[in-house]
Design a binder for these strands. Structure first.
Lengths: 242, 242
DNA sequence: TATTCTATATTTGTATACCAGATTTAAGAG
DNA sequence: CTCTTAAATCTGGTATACAAATATAGAATA
């Protein structure tokens, strides 16, 4: 009896399938704007790049189409989608409603008061990053600051609906926060974000629920103002849809 | 990868494609429970059914996998997914937060007061359907009643995040409201729904915002109770995951 | 009878080939 | 030099074929 081969299907760590790898690769390239909106790709070219046939490539491409990252047109090609501002606005609204509710629920459950010192420390770190002009680190710290509340309420799953995986929102946020803007713009925006965090904690400390809600809603509307500013300056207009 | 060639033309010629048709057909069959959870399909069998090759079928199947409607396992087959109760609970939470906010926003904008007679008429119609035991019509009327508020606030897009296209939530709702339950159960549940609608309008009429919010939250939690009831009776246990 | 082994059938994953339509290129007329 | 037009090229859509893994049914065995 052959007992050398132990079959343990459930515990087996499945290797990522080829279409998944291709999808992941392209999604990241698109999300980071490394592949610019409007750029033309072709299934055959991708197949050569990944040294496989068109079939696995095609599966990844079709999935990217469904996700809105690619726009494939028969007999023309597959194009990196332009950023859909309406979609960004929709996601921003969802984030305003859902994340505001989660923070306020934590507030109403009296979870936030005892955490004020911890939150102050997080914002203090953010201020230090700002003073050292570590804006990349600050962006990550901002993300962590917000994730903190999701974890506090065990509502991590909601993040899937607040733009974390939305290719349009992700690219808009990158444009708004990333290296595409000038150093002064990035510093001003980052300072604004940190000051907003400070005022949120003030509201928590003061027991001012309405002020906390206002600060939250205003905070999530930042991206609207930044995008309007970018479009007003006619920067990156070819990155956007219409 | 060539990123130098930027295609500026965004032609938009839409034609119904074979994979889309197959996807739509299967999605509906699954959503209506006509294809029962756990049933095995095969790409080749579907290809024969649709009189085409496996390629278009495969595209539809892969998309259904991403959407959670199918679970394809290599060299085993493609199985209609069982209903994921955790996913249903997640979607129910999103609906509670988002739809409650939308109705309360309309209330705060003083849009609902003048509409009380209209809302009363809708509920009166629902009561008539109930008295004539037209439960299918009543289910549609319930959907319309809720859609009314989305349209009032121009937030139709939010419906995409409140279960309208979630295959697990849709099937759970169908089990909870549909012909799978006994006539008495369906009548009792429907009566409960209509009475809840009535109490919402009462709260609007009385200017009792807190009561409106409570009724809304309670209303969206109905499905939890119904599903617990179904599982407690050991009905349709093979429809659910674990 | 119950269990194990084996040949066969089934199913998904992938490669290759071909098609139809759109685009690009280049030749030719004015 | 510009415009027209037809051939060449590129691209996604589909069909067929094969490979690898799994399931199934029947035979062989204890």
């Amino acid at each position: 009896m052959d007992t050398s081969i132990i079959e343990n299907r459930d515990a087996a760590v499945e290797a990522p399938k080829l279409p998944d790898e291709i999808h992941y690769f392209l999604w990241n390239k698109i999300a980071t704007l490394e592949l610019k909106p409007g750029v033309k790709l072709s299934e055959l070219g991708l197949a050569e790049q990944f040294k496989c046939s068109r079939i696995p490539v095609r599966e990844a491409v079709r999935r990217l189409n469904v996700e809105g990252a690619l726009d494939s047109q028969p007999q023309r090609g597959s194009f990196v989608s332009r950023i859909d501002l309406e979609e960004v606005k929709r996601v921003r609204y969802l984030r305003e409603v859902l994340e505001t509710r989660i923070v306020l629920d934590a507030y109403d459950a009296n979870l936030l008061g005892p955490l004020v010192p911890l939150l102050r420390g997080m914002v203090r770190d953010q201020k230090n990053m700002l003073s050292f002009n570590e804006l990349e680190k600050l962006t990550d710290a901002d993300t962590q600051f917000h994730d903190f509340f999701y974890h506090l309420e065990n509502k991590e799953f909601v993040q899937a609906h607040t733009g974390r995986y939305d290719i349009h929102y992700i690219r808009a946020r990158r444009l708004a926060l990333g290296v595409e803007r000038s150093d002064k713009q990035r510093y001003d925006d980052s300072l604004n974000v940190v000051l907003q965090h400070d005022r949120m904690i003030d509201a928590i400390e003061n027991g001012d629920r309405a002020a906390l809600e206002d600060e939250l809603i205003n905070h999530f509307r930042n991206i609207n103002h930044t995008l309007e500013d970018i479009l007003h300056r006619n920067e990156f207009t070819d990155y956007f849809h219409i």
